[in-house]
Amino acid sequence: MFTGNANYIRHSYKVTNELKSYTVFELVEVAGNTNFLTDLIRIEKFNGKSNATNIKDYLRLRTATSWDKSQKVTGLRPTENDRIFYGDWLKVNEPNAPKKTLLIFLFSKDRKNLFIDVYRGFYPLHKGILQNIIKTY
């Protein structure tokens, strides 16, 4: 998929488990069979254990046998649209990994489906570019 000057890979998820403090999603489809995330993800309430600001929820990938040991990726930063969020993914310990990747989160109206667009290796340096990308949604 293509937005402006940046390509992204869309990951489609559906809810499998929903509790007060988190929601688990299972991968349904990924564009081009290029999965940059994991088959299971969890959107959980932000517990304030980092310096992040202006976020209520956090993305966690299922990278271990338990959710507590699995990788936290990014907070979901709000936009003007209450169904659209964005975040960044720093993969500092992986060889040849891009330094920062833009993630755009789009929830369905009933919040039972989630689309995550992964702009691998791309993160806008200027806030205006980020806002223009978000406006395309």
Rank of each mutant, 00 (worst) to 15 (best):
L103Q: 05
A97W: 04
L130G: 05
N33Y: 06
T136A: 02
I104G: 01
L37P: 01
T38Q: 14
K20C: 00
W67V: 11
T79W: 01
L106S: 08
Y86V: 07
A6D: 07
L102N: 04
L106P: 00
Y123R: 02
K99E: 11
H126E: 05
E44D: 11
F2E: 15
F25Y: 12
Y137V: 03
T23N: 00
F122G: 00
F105D: 03
N33C: 13
R83Y: 04
Y123L: 03
K56R: 12
E44Q: 08
N96V: 06
I116W: 09
T16W: 02
P98L: 03
R83I: 06
F107V: 10
F25G: 01
I116G: 03
I55V: 15
G48L: 07
F46T: 01
L90K: 03
L114E: 07
N35S: 10
N93Q: 08
L106M: 10
L106Q: 08
D110I: 05
R62C: 15
S21Y: 13
D117Q: 13
P98F: 02
K72S: 13
F36W: 14
L40P: 01
Y123S: 03
D82P: 15
L114R: 02
N17Q: 11
E94M: 04
G32F: 07
I9P: 08
T23K: 11
K99I: 07
D68H: 03
V24R: 09
P95C: 06
N33L: 13
N51H: 14
I43D: 01
K72H: 13
Y58N: 13
K20R: 13
N47F: 15
I116K: 06
I55N: 01
T101D: 08
L59M: 04
G48D: 10
K69E: 13
T16E: 14
K109Y: 05
E18H: 09
F2D: 14
A31T: 11
N47R: 15
N7Q: 06
R62E: 15
T101V: 06
S108W: 08
A64R: 12
N7A: 12
E29M: 14
R10D: 09
P95D: 08
F115S: 10
L130T: 03
S21W: 12
N113R: 08
G48N: 09
V15N: 00
G32V: 12
D117E: 10
N35R: 11
V15Q: 01
V73D: 09
N33P: 03
N93M: 03
I55D: 03
E94G: 02
V73A: 14
P98I: 01
L59A: 01
Q71F: 12
K49E: 12
L102E: 06
N51E: 13
G75N: 07
F46N: 11
M1I: 08
T65K: 14
L19H: 14
N81M: 05
E18N: 09
R62K: 15
R77A: 04
T136I: 01
T63A: 15
K45W: 00
K127V: 09
L27D: 06
F122M: 00
Y13P: 00
A64G: 02
V118Q: 12
T136W: 00
L114N: 02
L59H: 00
I55G: 00
I104S: 02
M1C: 10
D82Q: 05
K109N: 11
I43K: 00
T74C: 14
K14C: 04
A97I: 05
N96D: 07
E29T: 10
S21H: 11
Y123D: 05
F46H: 13
H11I: 06
T3R: 10
L102T: 06
K127H: 08
I43T: 02
